[in-house]
């Protein structure tokens, strides 16, 4: 089960770039006790080698994450950006994608992983779901929607 807390759902944030965003989201997860500081390094290192931008519609998303190391409690952090930042495409790292929403996963249970990915991929495949996530006003609404998606 992934912890989803309003404190790590950031709506309409401004950041300079992907690294800053990853640091901001990890800081929230760390403050909530879900990860240690080792995790942010793992996520940044992995993103450099194996990027996680996805060319979804109607806008691109990214799914940064590390391995299980540094994760104390599985959690999903989320950011909706005022201005997109560049992530490299997971399928083709030479391609830059302008990403508007970021789902940062921290997972410490292997068995969670496939299920969570399947739920998220169902959402990524439905432009209507991402659009809906774009218009929600309150973190509580976003948290309900993400919890619904992950528990379906």
């Amino acid at each position: 089960m992934f912890k989803i807390d309003e404190s790590f759902l950031l709506l309409d944030v401004d950041v300079l770039n992907a690294e800053e965003l990853i640091r901001v989201l990890c800081a929230k997860l760390e403050a909530a006790g879900c990860i240690t500081s080792a995790y942010v390094h793992a996520v940044l290192a992995r993103e450099g080698k194996y990027p996680t931008g996805l060319p979804t519609k109607p806008f691109c998303v990214a799914l940064p994450h590390g391995e299980m190391e540094g994760v104390k409690e599985s959690a999903l952090a989320f950011a909706r950006l005022n201005e997109p930042v560049v992530f490299r495409n997971m399928a083709n790292r030479d391609e830059s994608l302008e990403v508007k929403m970021v789902f940062l996963l921290a997972n410490n249970e292997a068995k969670n992983q496939v299920t969570a990915l399947r739920r998220l991929s169902d959402m990524f495949g439905e432009p209507g779901q991402l659009s809906h996530l774009e218009i929600l006003k309150e973190p509580i609404e976003v948290s309900r929607m993400l919890m619904d998606i992950l528990s379906e």
Partner: peptide, 15 residues
């Protein structure tokens, strides 16, 4: 797949 979260497990599962 690349690494980490193992997106390949997703494909594996569905296939």
């Amino acid at each position: 797949c690349g690494a980490g979260i193992n997106t390949s497990t997703l494909g594996e599962d569905m296939i």
